[in-house]
Design a protein around this nucleic acid. Structure first.
Lengths: 346, 346
DNA sequence: TTGTAAGCGTTATCAA
DNA sequence: TTGATAACGCTTACAA
């Protein structure tokens, strides 16, 4: 029961396995009458249709693409940026009859990347170490950020975007700025306020290991703020909650900054919450900027707009081989100024 | 290239295929020296490790579970409820070394449910028609709502919860109430204001087809509001946007209700947005209720709290066969009263 | 410690 | 229209 195969049916009906197979896949290859009898009999025997895995083996492809995330699968769902991106990817793949497999980092010694049956991988942001792993599989691999040795990537010019944000803040007259950086490495403590120079050293190490991928963005921001009085706070991931925690650290110190530059909207929205809780008015008392232009940012967050959904779509097309020659795609971004930023109070 | 198999390696090295297999899977089954040579040679030949699909076929399992969604994969990501549930499920499965496959409804004539290599299915809410399809595969199937013929489900007592909401609204003195119902069938027009009786007829048909699964909740609400002046609005899905649209219809009529009962928080949050845009103060001018207690509801939405994440976790355990005998799990819910509801204005 | 044989369940090819 | 044969790439059981 449940273990019925085409062979069983063929045997019982006195036909060949091939005929049974054809009954399921190639109706035109046999008489309607025989086909009907086979299907009926198969149903009666509890046959549940051609085994998917056997078929995949035989056909040499799975119609499944793996999305690789290093922070534990469930974290993906907490980050709106990733959720939107995934939505675009899903739309594209689904239209092509392909499915998405969420691949975690594994728990024990086994590397799940090696055991999943997929036709290719998408490396989500913050997941660079998996590049090597995916390459080991010898399968197509595309990523959400520029990276060497992959078969394609889709990104914006993160460094320029970082510069644009910094420039905006500087022009508003802010001289005392806190940058909230997403810290993706669990081993390193979060929420530590550091001087930029020391932080850059750390980040550069991470970047060299391929772990820290908002490096260009961070670099652009810090470069653009050079000469000002800058602090950096590392947050635990890119979520609203993390942003709130970060803001708590910043705001409860004496010597508050007049501007907080968060490296993602998710973080920035958390910062805004924390400010309001303290009766601080964003854009007047303290300016706040984000990055991504999530839907929630429309309520008044100054940020960098990037076409997140399109990123996902294009990654899907890249994977499906639908795009022409260009496999390194740089999308446009745009500074969107809203009410969360204003002139530095004097 | 890329097509190297164990046999190739075995041939080249003059050993058996089995030895090569062992070199990769059973280090203790051969001398470290030989193993080292094999691995080195394999790498040199461009072998990328044991073929995942072949292994799955041979081992008779994939370590993958399919999450079935009927509304198109990307819609899942728009619904916070589903996202949270998925997070819990992912955490549980990942801990067991299993992965999640997002299964869409397919585009052409092919039914993806029949072609994916999985060990079982999770039927997300609003996806009942897939129950039959999943059953056709003869694989374990668990769902987020009570359903016959499945191997398990995890839910709350939706009808009681609906009654609790209605009761709360009634006690506050509201006599003119609009219920916002999630309409999941694309074929039917949305945003149509209907009298409850006619709506119930429609919903009952959908329910009979297994398409409308907040049926108990809806029934509880309408039952609890019986005798009052009740209108019903059908929204397009359960999202903030849909809620905003629904509220627009409601509020722009003369003869506004004094209370809006939305059947999900996502909808309710959209309703709140729409009210505020119109200068209407929630809880004073118009009361609003939701359902789920999403994080965003904490800002002031009266709602029903249900352990969404736990639902996902338990579904995972059910699928992995980790729960004891009980395969029909009813979780607790709780009415949470916040500022979005208040006495009916007179 | 290494090798042999026999599938896992399907589909492509080519012959009948 | 139908059937026999040979893969697809691997691993379990058992033998050497």
């Amino acid at each position: 029961m449940g273990k019925v195969t085409m062979r069983d049916i063929a045997q019982v009906m006195g036909v060949s396995v091939m005929t049974v197979s054809n009954a399921f896949n190639r109706p035109d290859q046999l008489s309607a009458e025989l086909r009907g009898r086979i299907l009926a009999r198969a149903a009666k025997m509890g046959y549940t249709g051609p085994n998917a895995v056997a078929r995949q083996l035989r056909e040499g492809r799975t119609r499944v693409f793996g999305v690789v995330v290093t922070q534990g699968v469930e974290r993906v769902f907490e980050d709106p940026y990733q959720v939107i991106l995934l939505g675009g990817l899903a739309a594209e793949l689904e239209a092509a009859g392909a499915n998405i497999l969420l691949v975690g980092t594994g728990h024990d010694d086994v590397d799940p990347m090696m055991r999943v049956g997929v036709d290719g991988f998408v490396g989500m942001c913050t997941t660079h170490p998996m590049a090597a792993a995916a390459s080991r599989r010898g399968l197509p691999l595309v990523t959400t950020d520029p990276m060497d040795g992959v078969d394609g990537w889709v990104s914006i010019d993160d460094r320029q975007a970082g510069l644009a944000i910094a420039d905006h803040v500087r022009r508003l007259g802010h001289r005392r700025v806190t940058v909230v950086v997403e810290q993706t490495v669990p081993e390193h403590p979060c929420m530590v306020v550091q001087q930029p120079d020391h932080l850059l050293d750390l980040l550069q190490v991470l970047q060299a290991d391929g772990i820290y991928d908002v490096w260009p963005r961070t670099l652009g921001v810090l470069e653009g703020l050079e000469g000002l009085d800058v602090d950096v706070v590392c947050s635990a991931g890119s979520s609203c909650r993390a942003g709130r925690e970060a803001a708590a650290v910043v705001m409860d110190r004496q010597d508050r900054p007049t501007a907080v530059v968060a490296l993602s909207d998710a973080l920035a929205l958390g910062v805004l919450d924390a400010l309001r809780e303290r009766g601080v008015v964003p854009g007047r008392d303290v300016s706040v900027t984000g990055f991504d232009d999530l839907p929630d940012a429309a309520a008044g967050l100054t940020t960098i707009r990037q076409p997140i959904r399109d990123k996902g779509r294009l990654l899907g097309q890249l994977l499906l081989g639908q795009t022409g020659g260009e496999r390194h795609i740089v999308l446009d971004h745009e500074l969107v100024v809203r009410s969360s930023t204003g002139p530095a109070p004097r």
